[in-house]
Design a protein around this nucleic acid. Structure first.
Lengths: 193, 193
DNA sequence: AGAATATTCGGAGAGACCCTCCGGTAACAG
DNA sequence: CTGTTACCGGAGGGTCTCTCCGAATATTCT
């Protein structure tokens, strides 16, 4: 007689698997930050002290590894959205969050190609995309409600601009430039403009 | 006794060399537009009906090939700058040129990584960079003079934003989004803002 | 505790790509 | 027409990505 219960939680993951997964994320984050998004995956595996097979079983594609690495950062961004919304005026919360976004994303070299999928239709990066899109959507809605931002502003437009700005994070003083651009974007989104 | 005249024009380039160079540019433009900036160079050579060696002699690096392909487009942008400056008010000339930039550059998928070097310090892309930087510099200077744009606006900031926006040219309706962003950028650069 | 079993590990290897080198060949000058 | 020069094109070394499979190990059941 077969078990009557439907397939129970198959088994709990093995300890070494979890350890390896975390070590991979740790090393990948460092290597991506240092050498950009097209670093050698074999090099990451070697630095993590595992074989390429193990790396590819945990993260079948380069993009899935990038997603794994930056999902943590994205959660911090989502948390910041809640914090800013609680402590700042709507438009200042939006500004602060945008500045933080530029710092967080731009500081890590070159997530660019992966980020593009965030506004595109790709299926990967779902977790990150939903969180970021939700955050900017709420921030903009609040700022529109308070009358500081034009009602017809599409939050995605701002998001695209932010990602674009973060893309160009190579010039020597890109950071100042990016901050000035955030101010320009917000000024250009005011009702009077 | 050596020739007294300094090295005369060494020789005129061979006919097949010029033919090959043009064919390479033609094919590369199509492939880059279709498959992005990291297409296989071997594939381009094969499609052009030549060997890899020939491709690499004409264009030693991937970036130099990209520069060769897009230098023509950039010249059209420079020409448009002159035309707009002659026929439009300063701020409208700036707006029209920015919209044209987005159309020209964003329509070709993925020049992104190469474009980044345009605002960065890289030595490649010099021809294109100088033309584009000169154009936006003149447009902004004229608009500042007429009082429609804040005097402390850095033209490079706008250029970086444009390149960023063009980077994200993947979403279904990126074109409308990009046009809205140009308007936001200009509105945010006005003196009152 | 000890055996059975399922899952993970890690390296070997196929395929693609980038780029270089060099012998053959075709164009230009005299 | 002949010599010289520059160009052509493919073969090949090195690197990277990603897959496959035997060996090793953690977890579970008796």
């Amino acid at each position: 007689m077969p078990k009557s219960s439907p397939p129970p939680p198959p088994r709990k993951p093995r300890a070494d698997a979890r350890r390896n997964r975390e070590r991979i994320l740790e090393v990948a984050k460092e290597v991506f930050t240092r050498s950009g998004a097209d670093s050698s995956l074999d090099e990451i595996a070697k630095l993590a002290g595992i074989g390429p097979g193990t790396l590819y079983r945990h993260f079948p594609s380069r993009e899935s590894l990038l997603e794994g690495v930056y999902c943590g950062e994205v959660e911090k961004l989502a948390a910041a959205e809640r914090r800013f919304s609680d402590t700042l005026t709507p438009v200042e919360a939006l500004r602060a969050w945008m500045l933080l976004f530029v710092d967080y994303i731009g500081a890590k070299q070159i997530i660019a190609p992966a980020l593009n999928t965030m506004v595109g239709g790709s299926k990967v990066f779902e977790c990150a995309r939903d969180q970021v899109q939700g955050a900017i959507h709420r921030l903009v809605a609040r700022a529109i409600e308070s009358g500081d931002i034009r009602a017809d502003l599409d939050p995605f437009d701002l998001l695209r601009a932010l990602i674009g700005v973060a893309n160009v994070a190579s010039a020597p003083n890109w950071r100042d430039s990016a901050r000035r651009l955030v101010h320009i974007l917000i000024a250009g989104s005011r009702p009077g403009a």
